[in-house]
Design a protein around this nucleic acid. Structure first.
Lengths: 202, 202
DNA sequence: GAATTATCTCAACGACTGTTGAGTTTAATG
DNA sequence: CATTAAACTCAACAGTCGTTGAGATAATTC
């Protein structure tokens, strides 16, 4: 009964207008700034100069809109993976710089991470994203490291760096906000190095 | 016109019943488990077998109820302060143990901290609490340390440890949850020591 | 122009929230 | 017992939220 083998598409084509991208941009900024709960669909729609029901038609629900926002650009993920690979000598410094630059770079890269971080407490999807984010660091670390607890060490380092970013960008601890990147790297990098590549007792 | 100097109190006395404490206990558990937004006054009231308006009469608003929950027992704060004081030799280990035990101890001590952590993203009061919590660590560190950036170093160490606790107790990263305390101390303590008491280059 | 499909608008539903006010019951005083 | 003030109950308000459905407008093909 189905007569639609290689059916020719008719009618208006989807996606030609940039409205959908405008909605996504507005949602990304809002979710990063206000978090998941405080961000309302009506507010996102107003930012994008669109009706609220329009947002619901593009993305089917608030959760799916949030999921679209959290889709981390692959370039950022590659940046992390390459940071973990390589020689052990300056591993700590490379990892620290990767985390700090990812959260302080252009909004298109930092906002999805901020949205994930802010949403991780109230939204199960964001929590799972962050969990996998740290887990994938663990895998990279397990490949590179030789010690049997290399995965655990990489996860702890990742948690520490996420804690520092949270204090700076979400909690806003004044002294940490005021500190410049080089000062932070100078203090943190040796500690992360110690976690990832344990020094023999001395 | 005021005739109330040393007026004798009449009528029923407040606070004789333990209902108020039951409400506070229920609220503490809920805020720690579900966070600020997901915790509703009606739910807290149901947990304490009380009408919702009763909660509003005891504590004037949801924010004040939350503030009462976050009032950290002074014993926990003293535990942190004493951990930062003392000789530099095993400072890292003492501090790490203080953080881990505070978040894994009895509910009366850990739940206010969990409520603060979970609420810090959506509630301004919780965010300020956590900010001051880290700040007070900074002060303790500034007293003990000799380096000019001792306060910054103490703040970074505190952020790192909060990050680890968050990964374990809120995000629930499996490998970190499974790790036992002694293993964690063995890995983290040297790194925290490195942050607080920088080793000369070698 | 007719048909088809997507974009967009408008109004409303149903559920849930914090909060309030009036009224009832209970304990403590004179 | 009468009075006072607290503990407690019940019902409702006012606002916000995610979501839905019907219908108008616009683009694309035959």
């Amino acid at each position: 009964m189905k007569q639609s083998v290689a059916k020719v598409r008719r009618g208006r084509r989807p996606g030609t207008n940039s409205t959908q991208q405008a909605v996504l941009d507005a949602a990304r900024a809002r979710f990063a700034r206000d978090g998941f709960t405080a961000t309302t669909i009506r507010r996102v729609a107003a930012d994008a100069d669109v009706d609220a029901s329009q947002v619901m038609q593009f993305f089917r629900s608030k959760d799916e809109l949030f999921a679209a926002v959290m889709a981390i650009p692959s370039t950022a993920l590659d940046l992390f993976n390459t940071a973990f690979e390589g020689p052990d000598e300056h591993l700590g410094e490379r990892v620290v710089r990767a985390y700090l630059s990812a959260w302080e770079g252009a909004p298109e890269q930092s906002e999805p991470l901020m949205a994930m971080l802010r949403g991780a407490i109230v939204n199960e999807q964001a929590s799972e994203h962050l969990r996998e984010f740290i887990q994938s660091r663990l895998m990279s670390g397990a490949q590179a490291g030789t010690a049997p607890d290399a995965a655990l060490r990489a996860g702890l380092a990742s948690s520490m760096l996420v804690g520092i970013v949270t204090s700076r960008r979400i909690i806003g601890v004044p002294l940490l906000v005021a500190a410049d990147t080089e000062t932070l790297v100078g203090i943190i990098a040796p500690a992360i190095q110690q976690v990832l590549v344990p020094q023999p007792a001395f």
